[in-house]
Design a protein around this nucleic acid. Sequence first.
DNA 1: TACTAATGTATGTGTCACTTACTTTGCGAG
DNA 2: CTCGCAAAGTAAGTGACACATACATTAGTA
Lengths: 205, 205
Amino acid sequence: MPDKTTARSTYHHGDLRAQLIAAVRDLVESHGPDGFSVAEAARRAGVSSAAPYKHFRDRPELLRAVAAEGMDRLRAAMEAGCARHPAGSIEAVAAIGQAYVDFARGGPGVFRLVFGLTEGHAADTQLQGKGWNCFSVLLQAVARVIGLSEGHPQVQERAYMLWATVHGHSFLTIDGKTTGKFAPGADWPMLMQVAAAILRDGRAA
Amino acid sequence: MPDKTTARSTYHHGDLRAQLIAAVRDLVESHGPDGFSVAEAARRAGVSSAAPYKHFRDRPELLRAVAAEGMDRLRAAMEAGCARHPAGSIEAVAAIGQAYVDFARGGPGVFRLVFGLTEGHAADTQLQGKGWNCFSVLLQAVARVIGLSEGHPQVQERAYMLWATVHGHSFLTIDGKTTGKFAPGADWPMLMQVAAAILRDGRAA
DNA sequence: TACTAATGTATGTGTCACTTACTTTGCGAG
DNA sequence: CTCGCAAAGTAAGTGACACATACATTAGTA
């Protein structure tokens, strides 16, 4: 039995695909989304530089796999954050945003990969679907706060505004635009304020 | 006299630096921020692949120059948008946001380059300064709406929230996350709504 | 046990970033 | 005017990488 978690010994690796994804995730975090190479990932998995192409058509497809895995983790984190607060509360919505920001801060490279993917992003329907699933988490929470169905235009509108705000804040945070000059530092108060400001009207109606 | 706008003929190019920046800008737009190469930019300028290194230390420095030029264009657009509306009006703030989104839509590659720059972004104080200048435009407009000084915490806070929203919306737009499923399409109504929602409180105070 | 597909390797090609050593040329001091 | 130098260009080389092709090994199945 080979050591499945680190490397080879049986010619047939047995777990290469998953291990490549893990290696790429690490590389993307430590050297940036561009500073990664298929060759280096293969090296880390203890395999020849041509082996990855048996599992992924090309470089972008490998990156997309990492992004897809990231999307799943993001959705899970958002759901968990939401579940920690009463259904229909503003806190539940803010917690989704907090999970989003935490995800970005915890893995800026993967976050940048997940959103802002340039090569073949539009063509990957699986990735599109996972993205929609993430948005759905927020959509549902917003619907509960406002008291309308998820399909209602006002719900979609407000949810989108919140998404945009949190998305932008996440990017600004990992890009270091918030350090020094105009820094909010702690996110929670801002997230609560924004959620309250944007959801206020709908609730009263 | 050589044709300065297209290429060589005089051994000494005379305008290489500016022409490289222009070439890179085009390449970044057409092939994405990663799909650009120093070699290709040199080729387009009609010069050897080593020539660019007489003007820029390395690839990232060239990209940073393009980003800096983009920042200047963005600030100018924001100021122009703001100036088209009465000082202190919500419309003026929304117009700044509209200029921001238009800039992103008009040049997604450069927009991605300007924000989200990975290599040496933090070290470039000139770029940091230009970024701050952009934010200042918004800060000033928000201060006028609220009726407090630019340095007031509440002004900075609200301005940052608006920035984050517009920034996020811009990214989602150029990433195609708004097409099909949850699309606001026209930005202006949303920008006005968000600006109103976030600036409402401060104004009354 | 022999076949076959999946999965790995070795090797080669073209491109790229960047370096070094050399060449051309604009320009200022004498 | 010309001499000389620094700025700005070239050619050629290095090492890394993405990806292709041909071949080797192995796991599972008939």
